[in-house]
């Protein structure tokens, strides 16, 4: 097994770490959501990549179909994508409300505004 043979995993881990890093390091709430989406996308790859076989076909029982790719991860990830879209939509909606209530979407300014209110 070579590094190139594990290309899918390297891509997954890179997206995972990049997404998580953005979530942690950026103070802008919209950028945080972008990072969260990248983080979630890495899971889609984690499931889908191993399901594909080189030379694999769709899973049909019949003449000439011997090696096939696993369709189940696609179905699972379709669900996960829906969850991810819903999360992103809800997150952006909350950011809109935060902007209306505070006038900013920078985390530092939000913390300062709350500290002043106390």
């Amino acid at each position: 097994m070579s590094v190139a043979g594990h290309f899918g995993y390297w891509a997954t881990v890179f997206l995972m770490m990049a997404g998580l890093f953005i979530v942690i390091s950026r103070g802008n709430l919209v950028k945080k959501l972008v990072g969260l989406s990248i983080f979630q996308s890495s899971v889609y790859l984690l499931y889908i990549v191993p399901g594909k076989l080189v030379g694999g076909t769709v899973p049909i029982v019949g003449e000439g179909f011997t090696v096939y790719s696993n369709p189940l991860p696609h179905v699972l990830i379709l669900t996960a994508i829906v969850v991810g879209v819903a999360t992103l939509a809800l997150g952006l909606a909350i950011v809109v409300r935060i902007r209306e209530a505070y006038g900013t979407i920078e985390e530092d300014d939000l913390l300062a505004a709350d500290a002043r209110a106390d």
Binding site: L29, G91, I94, V95, R97, I98, A101, Y102, L110, D114, A117
Partner: peptide, 8 residues
């Protein structure tokens, strides 16, 4: 309004 930031 802190409910919004807590929720986020």
């Amino acid at each position: 309004r802190r409910a919004l930031t807590a929720s986020f």
